[in-house]
Write a protein that binds this DNA or RNA. Structure first.
Lengths: 153, 153
DNA sequence: TATAGATGATTGCGCACGCATTGTCAATAG
DNA sequence: CTATTGACAATGCGTGCGCAATCATCTATA
């Protein structure tokens, strides 16, 4: 057990950071210039599209993201301001609030997703064949399973 | 060319985001609690360790990072405040300034790096064998080469 | 040499975030 | 039924960042 990364480790780990930084920068830029939403905001729209009735509790949205509840509360503020989402206090638990996708939000999400798929395919996925993509997926699944098993912090 | 990701694409791309988010959260937390520096601040210390004379221009540090010049200027402010770095105006170009590692900064970097290697090995690298790590490295190298070729934006 | 334009670092301003707190409500115990 | 405890969302405050403007300096051109 040495104190520095080996060359192989340095490539596998260090460059992983660069890859995702490069891709996220591009995505952020595209979403901002074409749709005036941040990547985080788009992710919320996407989760609402996936959800039953196009609605999710603020708490759940926060837990599923990198943000805290307060951060998510304000992110929903901005989406509401932009008319992409509306709020509704929960019928079954008056403490909670739902964020609900509006028609406008749904439309924006659909178009933005098409552009994202285009961009990710063009700059990332197209560099690998089917078998390689499958292998990557297997790598990540292994990591995420291990993560949820060991420490659900 | 369909409008949505295939399952394989969704794994290879979507989960990549989760993997690196999970790892970065852990690293941030460790660096903050054990060494009171952010991940970005540590990265600057690391670059200074690598540099000749342990000194780099603020401009170069910014370009090599995700930050703008102004952001890097303030990051160096904080490192200076903490006594990990000192500033010096450049002899060869009086517009510029160097950030220079202090002994204290060098010591902190050395210890922190050991912990980072430990953590990354324990939670990520240890899940894969040598061949798999090599393959990952090849994947990332392919991406980064393609990226620098095509659009140096 | 004089001057226009480019470049490096810094700073004012606004924004998004986390932390800690508050207000509201639900659930459980007595 | 009441009191205590815990959970959800919202908000005040502090912080780190980008953008744009500024100041100092370098470089290129006439």
């Amino acid at each position: 057990m040495t104190l520095k990364f080996t060359d192989i480790e340095g490539l596998a780990w260090g460059k992983l950071l660069s890859v995702q930084a490069a891709m996220l920068r591009r995505l952020e830029e595209m979403l901002q210039t074409e749709f005036h939403v941040s990547h985080g905001e788009f992710e919320v729209l996407l989760r609402l599209v996936w959800a039953d009735d196009h609605r999710r509790r603020i708490r759940d949205l926060a837990d599923a993201s990198v943000l805290t509840r307060s951060g998510m509360s304000r992110l929903v503020d901005r989406l509401e301001q932009a008319g992409l989402v509306r709020r509704e206090t929960a019928a079954e638990d008056a403490r909670g609030a739902y964020a609900i996708l509006t028609t406008k939000g749904q439309e924006l999400q659909a178009v933005a997703e098409i552009r994202i798929v285009e961009l990710v395919r063009e700059r990332f996925l197209s560099l690998y064949n089917e078998a390689e993509l499958q292998q990557m997926g297997a790598f990540w699944t292994r990591f995420l399973n291990h993560e949820t098993e060991h420490s659900d912090s």
